[in-house]
Nucleic acid binder design. Structure first.
Lengths: 202, 202, 202, 202
DNA sequence: AATGAATGAGGATTCATTCAT
DNA sequence: CATGAATGAATCCTCATTCAT
């Protein structure tokens, strides 16, 4: 009846992270619809109950995962941001965004394709964090517009969303493997990306 | 003892269609993740078992739904195609594509966001049908390029895919309700759409 | 994956009854709070899922049990009704009521101590059936009052409820084993019963 | 690292009382079947584990609650006891008993409807305490019998139990909301109570 | 005296599917 | 062509309790 020993893997505060790691791994492995608390527990080597010590519910866990993903995406964008010339920044950021999506397929989908109605409310704080990513693009567009090298019409905010739209579509269709196999995937990605960025030149 | 009478709804070949109709309806009603054979059967007024007389499995049924959706999208695109000026055609087709997505949210997601790897093989025939939709865009781009009013670089095929990518991103983010609420959804859609189409002008 | 053979016990329409029987048995064995679908299924030798073919939910099953109990109680009362002298009838019915309760302890509690708020709505039809039992007492009291041998003040309906109240209290405390052990249970029951009935003599 | 500070509520012996208070409160709030250690702990602002420092088990806690309830009931009866005329005393005590039950619905049920067999042994001390309440009725009946104004046949003890039986039945059915809604609940209670008391007049 | 972390057992219910008829 | 009966596996989550600290 009582626990005999710290079963196998992480314990304490580490467990929380282990759970997130395993959840992320499983997301890629089996996909969101088949992600279950039991599988996560089995994966980390703890009991399903233990998960509830660290996450209120499955939704909360997913939220945490999304939050993590948003932070991670932000980091990737910042790391890729060359600073300086807005045009170059825009290209670099766009590329980094797409790469992030292609490198974290299921995580990306959970981050951007999950319906809010199907999940408990996303905490406001996490929402703000998600927003920061777009702000990055908005900033670049705004400064590029000021320097007359980028077209941020009608407003940098709208333009940033429009740009995002194109990048997301590219990632999304590639992840869903809907791009014709006869098109070399990487070459196509390059072409589409170039086109998208070009469309925002002044 | 044999069944007494065809319970309520259609029988024979009709039943197949009734099942598809109900599945499509339920898709909107309860969403893909909660779509179940039983619910479909209850909705049509037949037994769950009967569905298996017409569809090998749930996957097969979903495939049929996708095929239907693809045909339906093709119809919508054709109906919206004004013929004549390639630039006008491109705008009209793009708009029609986006409208179809926004008008059939759940169906659209099943059509374009479902992972093929997690479903039984998508039949080649259906694949071809899906392809036709893109061909429409490709044709327009090709003829526009020939008339030097559209930019179909590097090839019409790639350009068509790139265009599709943008349109899909727009639909996808709107369906996932990820567009900032402060942006009027319809106005934003118009703006993004205009921008996308403009990017393909020569 | 598929069923191999009609596992063990009843099948078909019989299964429904077997489930009810087992549920009734378990009620006595482990009590209402620990009654679970799984245990019932194990008891009858079918899968937990199968129960849902016959009962919509646990509540529905309990309702069915209550309905059965009410019918059964009604039968017991009728069988014990000697006809004729209202005083004798009242005594016989009262005794039969108490005996029924003592003979079906858990069933009795589910029938009369379960909080309606804690269960889905009790179907109207079953409600009427429950009512019939009281009507029997009401009839006897009314006819006894007419013959001036019983006191049905202020009205037969109220008097019947008041009588019921006493009988139920007797059953309830005996079932909860709250009657002092130094009092011989049966002798006490006789005494209390006699007193109750006497209180309704004119 | 040791606990930093007594979190919020009481500590030491006070905590015991806080736990009982919260348990009683929760009993009304969520009902016995959904009463859980965790909920109690959350309510008091202590850890679930801490409860076990003061109560051996959930059963023990419930026992304590029952004991408290019995004391409380005893207080209510004593407070209502007018002294003097046995007939008046009997009426007053009976009314007080019923009121106590109706005013503390969930507690009353735990006190008188819980099956001892399904709980760890009820400590003898608590048993004695429960007994005192009945003794009160027994005394009144005995003195009333001596004064030939009450009927305590066959013995005051048995008569007290019989009286209790009726009072309990009244409370129990009212708590379970089994009294026909067409009967005004309070009026009916008055009528049934009057009848019960009258039945013990000499 | 008090805690945080952990657990195994169990809760009701839904699912896609299959069998014999 | 159609069915009703049945199933095992899976779902999220809650429970009372215990351990080391």
């Amino acid at each position: 009846m009582p626990p005999i020993a710290p079963t196998r893997a992480a314990t304490g505060a580490d467990l929380r992270q282990s759970i997130l790691d395993e959840a992320r791994r499983l997301l890629i492995d089996v996909g969101y619809p088949k992600l279950s608390m039991r599988k996560i527990a089995d994966g980390v080597g703890c009991s399903a109950t233990s998960i509830y010590l660290h996450f209120e519910s499955k939704d909360t866990l997913i939220h945490a995962l999304i939050g993590e993903g948003m932070r991670s995406l932000f980091g990737a964008l910042q790391a890729a941001d060359p600073a300086g010339d807005p045009v170059g920044r825009l290209a670099a950021l766009s590329r980094a965004y797409v790469d992030f999506g292609l490198d974290n397929p299921e995580l990306y989908e959970v981050m951007f394709q999950l319906h809010p109605e199907r999940m408990a409310r996303f905490p406001a704080e996490d929402y703000r964090r998600a927003r920061r990513n777009l702000d990055l693009f908005e900033d670049v567009l705004a400064s590029g517009a000021e320097a007359s090298v980028l077209d941020a019409e009608p407003t940098p905010e709208v333009a940033a969303h429009a740009l995002w739209t194109s990048l997301h579509g590219l990632v999304s269709l590639r992840l869903a493997e809907r791009i014709d196999v006869r098109l070399a995937a990487d070459a196509f990605t390059d072409a589409a990306l170039a086109r998208t960025v070009r469309a925002f030149r002044a």
